[in-house]
């Protein structure tokens, strides 16, 4: 099985499309960090001007932690596309090039192949998140130093102590990984049903967009339904930057997200192991 996962990872590593996500993240992180380096202080002064009327804000607000948070906030929304780009291609890509015939006539069970692909897709997803976090925090610290994190919520400003920042970022990235794993499993599921990789990628993004729109609609009838949409829970990583931690909400979201992952994997696996390879 490890051999199989290794092969799958090697294939992902060698695919040019794998690096689109990493490159896109690097460019955006650099642009945002350098922009803040140029005039972030003025921008923050503007944001905080109402508070500065009453208070002296002591301490370095513009620091690596804030930069990392701002970038995570901006980019995690776009991450599903980057994940779908690779996960949606995992099986359908093999079907479109015909290599699925070669793959499935090898002495590995379909279940092994399926889970090797899922693990490889998850490793990619994790690497992408780690890259985003490390780059945003690394460049942020290099340019702005460390310090307490000022979380700018729309209705509240939360200051997270510097000593708490590390574990919160780690937990948030782990949570983001769980959220994006839903996208990985969803794309993989669609990938099992398609013989070309464009369909699962486009379908994944379409579903995410539709669910996000439904989630944003303030219609009473949809309220109960909203809590079942995985997109509603994909932003749960942010809760690690609230004080105190809304543990109940975090746990319930994790359960719902894991439920989605399991459901998508069961459907995908069931179809994959029974599928006749006709193309």
């Amino acid at each position: 099985m490890l051999n199989l996962i290794g092969i799958e990872l090697y294939k992902i590593l060698k695919k040019p499309r794998t690096y689109i996500g990493f490159a896109a993240i690097a460019i955006i992180v650099l642009v945002v960090e350098l922009s803040f380096y140029a005039d972030g202080k003025q921008y923050l002064d503007f944001v905080l001007q109402s508070l500065r009327q009453h208070f002296v804000i002591q301490g370095e607000i513009l620091n690596g932690s804030l930069m990392c948070f701002v970038i995570l906030q901006m980019l995690i929304v776009q991450m599903p596309l980057l994940v779908a780009l690779v996960a949606g291609d995992l099986i359908s890509g093999e079907a479109s090039t015909g290599t699925v015939r070669m793959l499935l006539s090898k002495p590995y069970t379909r279940s092994q192949i399926f889970f090797a692909k899922y693990v490889a897709g998850s490793v990619y997803t994790f690497a992408l998140i780690l890259w985003l976090g490390a780059l945003a925090l690394g460049i942020g610290i290099a340019l702005f130093g460390t310090g307490d994190l000022l979380v700018l919520k729309s209705d509240e400003l939360v200051v997270i102590k510097a000593e708490d920042v590390w574990w919160r970022f780690s937990a948030a990235l782990l949570m983001a990984f769980v959220s994006l794993s839903v996208v990985t499993s969803f794309s993989l599921m669609l990938s099992c049903f398609s013989d070309n990789s464009i369909t699962p990628i486009v379908a994944t993004m379409s579903v995410i967009i539709i669910f996000t729109i439904i989630g944003a609609l303030e219609i009473p009838m949809l309220e109960k339904f909203k809590s079942l949409l995985f997109t509603t829970h994909m932003v749960i990583w942010r809760n690690f930057f609230d004080n105190p931690l809304p543990m109940r909400q975090i746990v319930s979201s994790v359960v719902i997200l894991l439920g989605h992952i399991v459901l998508f994997l069961i459907i995908a696996h069931r179809h994959f192991v029974r599928k006749d390879i006709l193309n």
Binding site: S50, Q73, L157
Partner: peptide
């Protein structure tokens, strides 16, 4: 004790954490 207007963050930078404790 300070009288202060409620703090508002511009949308571009704000996050909406789904919780209200």
């Amino acid at each position: 004790t300070v009288d202060m207007a409620r703090f508002k963050v511009p949308k571009a930078l704000a996050v909406d954490i789904n919780t209200r404790t």
